[in-house]
C-alpha cells in the first residue's frame, strides 16, 4: 500500500499559513510526490484560527488529514498548535513557533490564555518549540518566522531533499527577500528536536 505523509500547518489569520503550506507543497512536488493541500478563505481569515492540511505521497486521494494520522503539526501560534495536536499519530510531533497571540476573548478578559507548555507536556505530546522570534530578531525581519519554522520542521520530514526545500523557497519567496529567508531557513534547520522535560 502506498504511503502518504500528513502535515497540518496552523496559526491565526494573517500569519502567512497559506504561503508556508505552499512552500511545503512545492518542496514535496520538487521531490517527485503527488501533493494535495486544503486552504481556508473567507470569514475565518479575519484573525480567526487558520489551518492548512498538506498530504504528499505516491497518490493522494483525500485532501483532509484524518485524526490520529498526522506526522507533524507545524504551528505558527502555540495555542493553535495544541488545538490540532490530537490529529497526531503515534510518533508524530508538534513543531511550534514560540509565538503567542491572544484571541479577542482573552484580550477582553472573557477567557484566559492557558498554560500551553503545561498542557502539551501533561498530554505527553512530543513537541519542539522553535525560537523563531529570536531568529527573526537576529535577522531583523519578522516576516521570516514562517520560513524559520519550516527550516526546523524540514529536518524531520522524510522524503523531501534539502535541494527541494531550497528550490521551493526560491520559487515562492520574492527575490529581494530570498537571502534573508534562506538564512532563516538554515537557522531553523539547526534547531534540535528535543522534547521539554523528557528524554525524547
Amino acid at each position: 500500500m502506498s504511503f502518504t505523509t500528513n502535515i497540518i500547518l496552523c496559526g491565526t489569520g494573517g500569519q502567512g499559513i497559506l504561503l508556508a503550506s505552499e512552500v511545503v507543497c512545492a518542496a514535496a512536488w520538487n521531490s517527485g510526490f503527488d501533493v494535495k493541500k486544503s486552504e481556508v478563505h473567507g470569514m475565518a481569515q479575519r484573525g480567526g484560527s487558520v489551518s492548512s492540511h498538506v498530504r504528499f505521497g505516491d497518490k493522494v486521494c483525500s485532501v483532509l488529514v484524518e485524526q490520529g494520522t498526522a506526522h507533524m503539526i507545524i504551528a505558527l501560534e502555540k495555542m493553535e498548535g495544541l488545538r490540532w495536536a490530537h490529529f497526531l499519530r503515534p510518533g508524530g510531533r508538534l513543531v511550534s513557533a514560540d509565538i503567542r497571540i491572544n484571541p479577542m476573548t482573552v484580550n477582553t478578559g472573557a477567557a484566559v490564555y492557558p498554560d500551553i507548555d503545561a498542557l502539551v507536556s501533561d498530554g505527553g505530546i512530543p513537541c519542539t518549540e522553535v525560537p523563531v522570534l529570536s531568529i527573526a530578531r537576529e535577522l531583523d525581519n519578522f516576516k521570516v518566522v514562517n520560513v524559520a519554522l519550516l527550516g526546523a520542521a524540514s529536518t524531520l520530514i522524510e522524503g523531501i531533499s534539502l535541494s527541494s526545500w531550497e528550490k521551493a523557497i526560491e520559487e515562492r519567496v520574492p527575490q529581494k527577500a530570498l537571502a534573508v529567508n534562506m538564512e532563516a531557513f538554515n537557522r531553523g534547520r539547526a534547531v534540535p528536536h528535543l522534547t521539554k522535560g523528557t528524554a525524547s
Binding site: T12, M43, R46, S49, M79, E80, R83, H86, V112, G123
Partner: peptide
C-alpha cells in the same frame, strides 16, 4: 492524544 479544551478564536 486527547483533544485539548481551549478558548475559541473567532474572527
Amino acid at each position: 492524544f486527547r483533544e485539548a479544551e481551549l478558548p475559541g478564536r473567532p474572527p
